[in-house]
Simulated scan of single mutants.
Amino acid sequence: MKKYKCVIFDLDGTMLDTEKMNMVPLQRLIKEELGKDIEYDELLKYRAYAGKKTLELLEFKDIENSYDKWVKYVNEYEDGAKLYDGF
């Protein structure tokens, strides 16, 4: 029998549905810091990127502080992450 040293898996977007809890706070951050209203569906293209890369692509000026604020908003998002059906 083969023994494994470790198992690596991805929770975010694989086992846990975290889309809304990331995108809604991102919309809020964009409105606050960039003064833009971006439709939810338009933000979905950024799901594939890491947080700081997303902010860079959206042309935020202070990536570190904006990222910290985004994380705060995500953690405060009341609906939170949900397991996908079947887990």
Rank of each mutant, 00 (worst) to 15 (best):
Y46Q: 04
N22C: 15
K69N: 06
E64H: 11
D62G: 03
E39F: 11
L43G: 11
L16N: 08
L55G: 09
K72V: 00
I63N: 10
E33I: 13
E56Q: 13
Y77Q: 01
L58A: 06
Q27R: 14
F60P: 02
L44A: 07
Y4P: 02
D79P: 00
K3V: 03
Y40Q: 11
D41N: 15
T14P: 03
F60C: 03
G13C: 06
L44P: 01
L44Q: 09
I8S: 14
D12A: 06
L16I: 13
E78H: 08
A81E: 14
C6H: 14
E78F: 05
L11E: 07
Y46C: 01
K69E: 15
P25I: 02
N22V: 06
C6S: 15
L83F: 15
K31R: 12
I38Q: 10
P25T: 06
Y4T: 03
E56S: 11
R28K: 15
K5Q: 12
A81S: 15
Y84L: 11
C6P: 01
W70R: 09
M15D: 05
E64A: 14
L16D: 07
Y46M: 01
L83R: 13
Y4I: 00
K20D: 13
I38K: 09
W70F: 01
L57H: 00
G51H: 04
T14I: 14
G51C: 10
K5V: 01
Y84V: 02
R28A: 06
V7A: 14
K72W: 09
T14H: 06
F60V: 06
Y77N: 03
E59I: 04
Y67S: 11
M15T: 07
L26V: 10
D85Y: 02
K82V: 11
F9P: 06
V7G: 02
T54I: 15
E76G: 02
L16V: 12
G80D: 00
K82I: 08
E78R: 04
L57Q: 00
V24F: 12
E78S: 12
E59M: 08
D85L: 00
L11G: 05
K82L: 07
D10M: 03
K3H: 02
K52E: 15
L57F: 05
E76A: 14
L16H: 12
L29G: 08
Y4F: 03
L34I: 03
P25C: 10
K2D: 10
D17F: 06
F87H: 12
D12H: 09
L34V: 01
C6W: 05
L55N: 13
D10H: 08
L11Q: 10
V71E: 10
K5F: 08
K82C: 13
K36W: 10
K72M: 09
L29E: 05
D10C: 09
L29V: 02
K45E: 11
K52C: 03
N22L: 12
D12C: 05
E56C: 00
E32L: 03
F60G: 03
R47S: 07
L11Y: 12
E56G: 06
V71Y: 07
L58K: 10
D41W: 00
A48G: 08
Y73M: 15
K72Q: 14
I38L: 13
V24N: 08
E78C: 02
K52S: 06
M21K: 12
L11C: 12
V7Q: 09
L29R: 07
I30A: 12
L57W: 02
D12Y: 07
K69A: 13
